[in-house]
């Protein structure tokens, strides 16, 4: 019993403000929000340094704003389904599991479409080196992907645990909170970077 699970440790002997895991993920999400705030402000400052009409730089491909509006919608729907799944977790486990599967599927769809878009932009000659326009795009969208993929894996793990019947409410809340972060930071990203 010296080392328990990752979440077992000092005993909580009072009514916790929030369960340990939930409090920890909220703090972590705060840090991540500041990370993206740093990226967005960098994008805004670099864009402001370019002369009017020079952004996006001539000859560079445009970001696909219309197509990404659709993927943004897919991601938002995934978030809503997850929220719904969380509400049904206690009362109707079977329906919660279905909603979680639907949410994760939409999340995977989003990541897949973004990956294809990314590959297409590389094909059209949007590079990291030429200017910060392409560089910032790949760094910011890549940072989002670096959060979306682990968050999706967490959702899949939650689904497997739910299937086997040992998913506890706190773990589920932690995974859901992280996915909500991935969902909610994307529209801001879309607004700052694509539009």
């Amino acid at each position: 019993m010296v080392s328990g699970g990752a979440f077992s440790g000092g005993g909580v002997r009072r009514r916790p403000v929030l369960p340990n895991g939930v409090l920890a993920i909220l703090l972590f999400i705060g840090v991540e929000a500041m990370l993206f705030a740093g990226f967005f402000s960098a994008f805004t400052i670099v864009k402001a340094n370019f002369a009017p009409g020079m952004w996006p730089p001539p000859g560079q491909p445009r970001f696909p704003a219309e197509a990404t509006a659709v993927t943004t919608l897919i991601l938002l729907v995934s978030g809503v389904l997850l929220w719904w799944s969380g509400r049904r977790f206690d009362t109707e486990p079977a329906s919660a599991r279905g909603l979680l599967a639907a949410s994760a599927t939409l999340g995977a769809t989003f990541i897949g479409i973004q990956g294809v878009e990314w590959a297409r932009l590389i094909g059209e000659g949007l590079t990291l080196e030429d200017n910060p326009y392409g560089g910032l795009f790949y760094v910011i969208v890549g940072a989002h992907a670096a959060h979306a993929v682990p968050a999706l894996i967490a959702l899949i793990v939650m689904w497997v645990r739910m299937q086997r019947g040992y998913l506890d409410a706190v773990s589920f809340t932690v995974a859901r909170a992280f996915w909500y972060f991935v969902v909610l930071v994307w529209p801001v990203l879309y607004w700052r970077v694509y539009l």
Binding site: E32, A33, M34, L35, G38, V46, L128, N131, P132
Partner: peptide, 25 residues
């Protein structure tokens, strides 16, 4: 620390890319 470190991490990633991948942030 947690509230301030995010933007620097963003900057560190960009600076590392400037050093290694020759981006021009």
């Amino acid at each position: 620390f947690m509230a301030s470190v995010g933007p620097l991490m963003a900057g560190a990633v960009m600076l590392l890319f400037d050093q290694t991948l020759h981006t021009g942030f």
